[in-house]
Amino acid sequence: MSSVRPKLKPETPKAVTGWATPTGLSVWLTADGAWTEDAAELAVFTGEEAEARLAAALKQEAVVTDPYFMEVTADGKITGRETLRESMRAEPALSFGGGA
């Protein structure tokens, strides 16, 4: 990551995201512990559960690379200081490969 990731308070709603190790595609953690390429399916965590989920993700090196917290609203919408970057990751503005 380029920018310094903002430190989020325990009560701040957050998701866990990273890159799938084999493909490099952006992925988000779902409620059942799977990784999805669709940000609409991300799960929202807070407090100790969030920390536990990230800790578990950090141990899945072969599955996900560089997992981290991103700030979301309580219903899973992207917000916070990294809104622009995370929005681009979740929903690219360009139709890649077919021109812009």
Partner: peptide, 10 residues
């Protein structure tokens, strides 16, 4: 070996 991890992919 020229491999970066970018916003969406390698």
């Amino acid at each position: 070996n020229g491999v970066y991890l970018q916003l969406h992919a390698y």
